[in-house]
Amino acid sequence: MIPDSNSYFSVPHHFNVYLTSWDPKQTLPSDDELRDMQSVGLKLLTEVKSLEANCLLQLRNLDNDAKAVVDFLKLQSRKVDLVLQHVLEKEVQDGELFAGDQFGGSGVSIISSRPLIINEHVKTHIYLHTELVALLCICQIRTCTPLATDDALETPFWRCELEFSQILDDDIEQLVKASLNVQQKMLKKRKQTIDKQRS
Rank of each mutant, 00 (worst) to 15 (best):
I2M: 15
P3W: 12
S5V: 13
S7C: 14
S7L: 10
F9E: 10
S10I: 03
S10M: 01
P12F: 10
P12A: 14
N16M: 14
V17N: 07
V17R: 02
Y18I: 11
T20I: 15
W22K: 04
W22A: 11
P29M: 07
L34Y: 02
R35L: 05
R35F: 00
R35V: 00
D36R: 08
M37R: 02
S39F: 00
S39T: 08
V40F: 00
V40D: 00
G41M: 04
L42D: 12
L44E: 03
E47C: 03
E47V: 04
E47Q: 07
E47N: 05
E47A: 04
K49R: 06
K49A: 14
K49N: 15
E52C: 09
A53I: 04
C55M: 13
C55H: 02
C55L: 11
L56H: 00
L56S: 14
L56R: 05
L56P: 01
L59C: 05
R60Q: 13
L62R: 10
N64C: 11
D65V: 04
V69I: 15
V69W: 06
V69C: 15
D71K: 14
L73V: 10
L73G: 14
L73D: 13
K79E: 12
K79Y: 09
L82H: 08
L82M: 11
V83H: 09
V83L: 09
L84D: 00
L84K: 00
H86R: 13
V87S: 11
L88M: 10
K90R: 12
E91M: 06
V92A: 14
V92F: 09
Q93A: 15
D94Y: 04
D94N: 11
D94K: 06
F98H: 03
A99V: 07
G105N: 04
S106L: 07
S106Q: 10
S106I: 02
G107C: 05
G107A: 05
I110K: 03
I110R: 00
S112I: 08
S112V: 10
P115M: 04
I117F: 10
I117T: 10
I118E: 13
E120T: 10
E120L: 03
H121L: 12
V122W: 02
H125G: 08
H125V: 12
I126A: 04
Y127P: 01
L128C: 07
T130I: 09
T130A: 14
V133N: 06
A134N: 08
L136E: 06
C137A: 09
C137W: 00
Q140H: 15
Q140S: 15
Q140V: 15
Q140N: 12
I141F: 12
I141H: 08
R142A: 10
R142L: 13
T143R: 06
L147I: 07
L147V: 07
T149W: 00
D151A: 13
L153E: 15
E154Q: 12
T155K: 11
P156V: 14
W158K: 03
W158R: 01
L162M: 11
Q166C: 11
I172K: 01
K177C: 07
A178Q: 02
A178D: 02
L180M: 13
N181I: 07
L187I: 15
L187R: 14
K188T: 04
R190T: 10
I194N: 08
D195I: 07
K196P: 00
Q197N: 14
